[in-house]
Amino acid sequence: MVRGATGTAQEGQSYPGRHAASAAELAGVAAELGAGVRPGAVEVVAVRSVYGADAVVEPEAQVRTYAAATNAAVADGFTGLRVAAEITTLVRTTAQRDAFARYEQRIDRFMTRHPFSAVCAYDREVLGVAALAELACVHPAASPGATPFRFFARDGVDAVLGGEIDRTARELLARTLDRAELAPRGDELVVDAAELGFLDHRGLLLLDELGHREEAVVALRDAPAVVGRMAALLGLARIRVDTVGTTVDTIGTTT
């Protein structure tokens, strides 16, 4: 059994993936990690057996797989499921990365509502800085310098946007917003912007485009006041900025 800080038991899985591990190697890792804990608490499997070798993941199907595994772990008496995975082989090509980044955002939303958590490991040297940023930016936490901003799920809001967005992050943000595939529940997409350190006007225009695409108003909650001033100046129909204590509504502003 893997014991967390609160003493709760969670089932763990580990997927070493840098090289194709042999069955014997996997068994060795499992024995090492599982020493002294409840049988079945630690499971070590090859990445290819979960996702297929050099696979392009199917985001929706992969979430279902982990949902089933989480349910099974809970049914077995565990409090949840944790996964630590080294998945560089799944994100080497552009097509793989696109699918996986979409999956990352879906599973991230799943995690906010279910007893499932994960640590993803990617090989910086294999992927390079730009590819790594595409993956790092959709995690609530990432290695220092891996991404200029973070866009991830949190219970109670549609997304959290933190960090700094300027020209250097523009393409990354556009791609990330596209991959988010957010389905607004009403006519609003609530984005927690309390950790947003900087947003330039082009970044704000991307969020406005997201609103147009999703036919929703993007509500930036707890954003820096300057974002509200910028939105009012640009007269963006799909942006509402709720700064701390005030609401700057730009709908209907003429320019």
Partner: peptide, 16 residues
């Protein structure tokens, strides 16, 4: 704070 935020934004846009 407001003046500083405005100047930071302006500087960033102008350097860009």
């Amino acid at each position: 704070r407001d003046e500083l935020e405005d100047l930071v934004l302006a500087l960033s846009e102008v350097v860009d």
